[in-house]
Write a protein that binds this DNA or RNA. Structure first.
Lengths: 231, 231
DNA sequence: CGTCCTGAGTTGGAATACAGTTGCTGTACG
DNA sequence: CGTACAGCAACTGTATTCCAACTCAGGACG
């Protein structure tokens, strides 16, 4: 988190929504560390907009749980406790199977095509050991699956959960990727056959094994510990 | 949804957060009907603030799912489909037991005191047939329970879910209230004894029976039907 | 009857101004 | 040397004004 500009206006005018995604990405990717202060003016400069869209973006991010604010003290990147991080995994373990079951009942042919394409890509890449693209592919797969559930609110929840989890946790064993894409294939097949129950069971198992390969990215800060300096 | 002012500045300056809650309440209580247009200027007048805080409030409400917006076409009250409404009930049925289980493990004595007080009040009121206060008491009870879970994000999710459900659904039988407060008492006892498993089971049963007494407040609009006039 | 165009009205954003808070800093005092 | 407090700078929260971009409804036109 150095000084001033970085991503500034890459041509067209950036909207509040764009700024929101940009800040979120900068948080998830670690450019802004948990606890970092997010001054409005500073963000405005960084993204080349005025304070208005920045403030709107911060409100959204606050309600999503990525930043926390105190009156007149501004916004800062949230610092999820270890407890809370664990709960996120449990919430996902409950909701993802529901979402997939709904997707099995409501998916369109279009969703199916995208899912199959992603599975094919993912299996290829994981067989060839090209691990770098896999996190993104995994994200798209589950995102598509979530949207296929037909409930905007459920989909939004799942996507948000997943983002937060990938922010807090790192995936351990690259060896899991191949198994994961096998499972993705099986889930897609069940969804294609409208077999909600099978899809649900497969997803529960998938998430369970997947979760075991997660590890916290950082040690949560102990309230009394020495605060390290930030610029 | 009549003309202009209504709730205007009741004394002190209203902040964006206050405006947000005010609009949400006006939506949940039916002052703004699903599909109603929410013009910024109009809202600004109604709550006695400028457009800036109104816009921030609308962003928050959008991310919460109470309003939907389209670029340059403004915000309007969301119109959840019947499908989505059903999914909300299912999501709650999954998350509420988890929240209560966590509450059983993490609740403080203070939480416990509040819960016991609310149970006592609720049981009194429901025995005497004073049904008018019961919805609010029920809301507080579950809200306190959610906060006792120790996870801000889980608590926020539960509270938001509950609000949305009470917006979309009406509770049918007033006869359920007495049974409900019996169940609330049992849940509180389990939470007090740190018995997470029992608390979870009791909550699952509670939610299940409770859900059966729900009914949609309005018939979701059929996309092709004749649009009724507004304003 | 359908299509295109136009204009009023609203939103999205910028720039500016200002009051109220926060939180740091430096200083006086124990 | 440590602490408490006053003062100050920085920032937030809101208001206000202005403008471009866009939507939408209604009328002109083919």
């Amino acid at each position: 988190m150095n000084g001033v500009d970085g991503v500034v206006n890459a041509g067209r005018r950036l909207s509040a929504q764009t700024v929101c995604s940009a800040i979120r990405d900068d948080i998830v990717n670690g450019y802004f560390a948990p606890g970092d202060r997010l001054a409005e003016e500073q963000l405005a400069k960084r993204y080349g907009v005025s304070r208005v869209p920045v403030r709107e973006a911060l409100r959204t991010l606050e309600s999503e749980g990525f930043v926390s604010t105190r009156k007149h003290a501004g916004a800062s990147v949230a610092e999820p406790s270890e407890q809370e991080a664990g709960d996120l995994l449990e919430i996902r373990a409950l909701l993802e199977p529901l979402g997939v079951a709904r997707a099995a009942e409501r998916r369109t042919e279009q969703h199916l095509r995208v899912l199959r394409g992603l599975v094919k890509l993912g299996q290829e890449r994981s067989e060839k050991g090209q691990f770098s693209d896999l996190p993104a592919l995994d994200g798209w797969f589950h995102q598509t699956l979530a949207r296929a559930s037909g409930s905007p609110s459920l989909a939004a929840l799942l996507i948000q959960l997943r983002q937060k989890i990938s922010w807090i946790y790192a995936v351990e064993s690259p060896g899991r990727w191949m198994a994961a894409w096998e499972e993705h294939g099986a889930i897609t097949d069940a969804v294609a056959r409208n077999d909600a129950e099978r899809a649900r069971r497969l997803t529960t198992a998938h998430i369970e094994r997947w979760t075991a390969a997660h590890r916290l990215r950082r040690v949560p800060r102990i309230p009394g510990a020495t605060e390290r300096e930030r610029v």
